[in-house]
């Protein structure tokens, strides 16, 4: 197993292949700043929940033109941030459930968003794990391919509490 590229995103910092990327904003606003600077042409980004925005931006900066066979992510909090936002639309007297929020009440939606954008037709999985280290045996079981895979930790529990560490991983 070999890691060729890696990105880490926290609410205050972005590090791509060991090099920090300067940003003016922090938290959710930083993800929008990165979209406006590096992506620009995918307005569906604005419909995504924070977890999907995080995974999408991380994949966008990391993959660029590198094809991958699969995307395997994991996190601890599933889609709790968006679940909470959705709950707010169905609680109390103002019962107006939001369809746009409802469609993101599953953590694996982030892998689907990445797969659609990068035409990944292999496995897309999102595991709920206690620690990032627990993902490693899962990756090892999936990496018997010629092409690399995109894998890593993509965690979001609030608008300003998230972290992602995604890697391009090869079999050799």
């Amino acid at each position: 197993m070999r890691v060729s590229h890696e990105i880490e995103i926290t609410p205050a910092a972005v590090v791509l292949n060991g090099q920090p990327i300067a940003t003016n904003e922090q938290g959710e606003k930083m993800l929008v700043e990165l979209y406006r600077r590096y992506v620009k042409d995918y307005p569906k980004f604005f419909k995504m929940d924070t977890l999907s925005r995080l995974g999408f931006i991380a994949a966008e900066l990391l993959l660029q033109d590198q094809p991958v066979a699969a995307v395997i992510l994991a996190n601890r909090s599933a889609s709790i941030k968006n679940d909470t936002d959705y709950l707010a639309t169905i609680t109390g007297e103002n019962y107006y459930p939001s369809p746009a929020l409802f469609v993101y009440t599953l953590p694996n939606i982030v892998t689907g968003e990445i797969a659609i954008r990068h035409h990944i037709q292999g496995e897309t999985s999102c595991y709920i794990l206690e620690k990032p280290e627990q993902l490693e045996p899962i990756i090892l079981s999936q990496i018997n391919r010629q092409s690399p895979i995109l894998a890593g930790w993509c965690e979001c529990s609030g608008p300003n509490t998230f972290n992602a560490k995604l890697q391009i991983i090869w079999n050799n």
Partner: peptide
């Protein structure tokens, strides 16, 4: 189609 559902909710709300 999701946008359509949002518009229906908007008209109600």
């Amino acid at each position: 189609s999701i946008d359509a559902l949002e518009l229906i909710m908007l008209m109600d709300r």
